[in-house]
Design a protein around this nucleic acid. Structure first.
Lengths: 99, 99
DNA sequence: CGTGTATATAACCATTCGCGTATGTTATCC
DNA sequence: GGATAACATACGCGAATGGTTATATACACG
């Protein structure tokens, strides 16, 4: 599973950033306010887990999100979701959305 | 986040079991085919993360699932879900379900 | 062709973590 | 009250992991 990959806060931060669009490594280093080797290391883990994809642009590597593994995570979560989406909860949700 | 708690396979196994109903520790030890101290340790982590709840019945401790933290996980996943539930993907899903 | 830029990798360290073994604790039953 | 059952906790160990520092690689540009 990809849970252990997502267990790292920096890696979740990277995904959150890439969700808004692809980025070169330098951007991630700036936004995360951390060291470049650390970002590269996390990106490698994300890449090997299939959560990101790389594209080469001259000296830069542009990283892009790949949501497929998250889809598997969503599938794992599905049976649990039934536990809090009872009829009553659905009503609550509707009321919130309507408000 | 509860991601690091779920990163451990045994802990996910425990949750999968408790999803079918509450269980004493001994049951979990048998079903997971592992040692009792290990199960107790994982249960402690799950308890501190709010993912399970204990009830005392004589010498036995009955554990029960608490889905609230999973709901938070689901909330984290929500914005990503939009990435694969585009109009086209919805069509694919419909076709699969119809088949 | 040398220099600067962008990124990856290597080597190392400290910490954390899963696991096993041994022991403590509490309740039941004779 | 002693023995047993069910579970938690303490301790120690090896492996994995996040992080830093230093170095390698590849490209652009004068």
């Amino acid at each position: 599973m990809t849970f252990d990959v997502l267990a790292e806060p920096h890696r979740r931060d990277i995904l959150d950033i890439l969700r808004t669009g692809e980025r070169p490594v330098g951007d991630l280093v700036e936004l995360l306010e951390t060291s470049q080797p650390l970002v590269s290391k996390h990106l490698r883990v994300l890449r090997e887990a299939g959560l990101v994809d790389v594209r080469i642009d001259a000296q830069r590597r542009i990283y892009r999100l790949r949501p497929e593994p998250l889809q598997e995570l969503d599938a794992w979560l599905a049976p649990y979701r039934a536990l809090w989406t009872t009829a009553l909860d659905r009503l609550d949700t509707l009321l919130e959305e309507d408000q």
